[in-house]
Nucleic acid binder design. Structure first.
Lengths: 219, 219
DNA sequence: TATACTAAGTGTATAATGAACACTAAGTAT
DNA sequence: ATACTTAGTGTTCATTATACACTTAGTATA
């Protein structure tokens, strides 16, 4: 390999989304080392020998969340020569969706170096992570409108009103209940479980689930 | 940098599309060196010191085509550990669109190590380039259906029938003339030039152009 | 135990959009 | 003058999207 060519470090950085308290949130890690020590950042890590990018992304995800089998896709690759002040580092950004219920850390019990931040109130972030996260939010919002990508944020079984609420939080707008139900059922992606959710002082709701845990596109 | 981390070579590889002879074609280069010597491959090259990914992609594009100011976007990053048999190389793939008329090499005068291959009849390709190109074609076809991305393939001024033909070639299907015209004009992205194309033994056609040379989304 | 409260669940009418379809117009060639 | 070629134009019908309000089935409480 000629020295005129770059041989940068490669990282994967993850935009890990969840919804809690009716807000779209993203996981942030407080950096323990320089540069940007004590600054919030996206969870990420260097690519290891022999590891594919997807493997690296899944490894980092599992390290930080303890969760496997979540929806994840490659987002974009950021390679500005000055994005890391130390040396050349190229990062391949991924975005992942996790149902809040599958995380073992309830919001109260948050550790000091990990937080879930609402996407419309991000703190100062290390490197170019604000650019990356804003790009990820844009992609998630766009994709929510023409696919069933929200399945990645749902528990296995859910009420239609919960599903509607997820959509509303992501696209940040209200939807009509009857039209939403008609459209969702018309996609053929949902099925009744037969079970009912009997919590709350009101009529019980049918619980639904996705037939396949796969992304599908509408239109 | 710790040795357990990868410091791979980084390349950019380009899916450069054009349309000629009513076919969607992609540029291929015959490799002069091992591995895959004498095998067709995507145009590409190693990232140079201090160069951003976009700069590298534009540099390679300009080296191969002599053309600047074309539509280009990042496609995907491919990082399988075994994708290059020599050593670890990660490639950031881009796709670019070039109007056939802007290329200075007419099809007759093709050089031996460069060709334009129809996308539905690709030869054997080096590395994972067939996977990358098929992915690029998929993206182009999808994007053609909900954006004006074809502007990247059009000359500055064109007949509506030419524009329709471009769409038909990309999506590989016939469109209704009257509906196509209605819809395209309804986007508000086109404007009449006032000039007419008087070639051919038939009624002259109004020449149109895009108001802005920017990608815009329908729906 | 009647009444209030809450979220679940359901249908219709109207507007907007998409799809199918055929002839006339304005040139050139013979 | 006639044939030929591509340009250019509207309407009807089907489908889809939108707006909108009441009844149902449970729990809580007075």
């Amino acid at each position: 390999m000629n020295t005129k060519y770059e041989q940068p470090g490669i990282t994967v950085d993850l935009a890990i989304f969840t919804i809690s308290n009716n807000k779209l949130k993203v996981m942030l890690i407080k950096r323990a080392e320089e540069p940007f020590r004590d600054t919030w950042s996206m969870p990420g890590g260097f690519l290891l020998h022999g590891e594919s990018l997807e493997e690296a992304a899944h490894r980092v995800l599992c390290e930080k969340t303890g969760v496997k089998n979540v929806y994840m896709e490659q987002l974009y690759t950021f390679g500005d020569p000055k994005r890391d002040p130390r040396s050349r580092v190229i990062t391949v950004a991924y975005f992942a969706l996790i149902p809040w219920k599958e995380l073992d850390q309830p919001e109260s019990q948050k550790v000091a170096d990990l937080t879930w931040s609402a996407v419309d109130g991000l703190p100062k972030l290390a490197f170019d992570h604000k650019i990356i996260l804003n790009y990820a939010v844009k992609r998630l919002r766009a994709k929510a409108s023409y696919s069933n990508i929200v399945y990645g944020l749902m528990p296995k079984q859910f009420r239609l009103s919960e599903l509607q609420s997820m959509y509303e939080i992501i696209i940040n707008d209200k939807l009509d209940k009857r039209n939403f139900r008609k459209q969702m059922l018309a996609t053929g992606l949902l099925e009744e479980t037969g079970k009912k959710d009997i919590t709350g002082a009101h009529r019980p709701a049918m619980l639904y689930q996705f037939k396949k845990m796969e992304i599908a596109f509408f239109n």
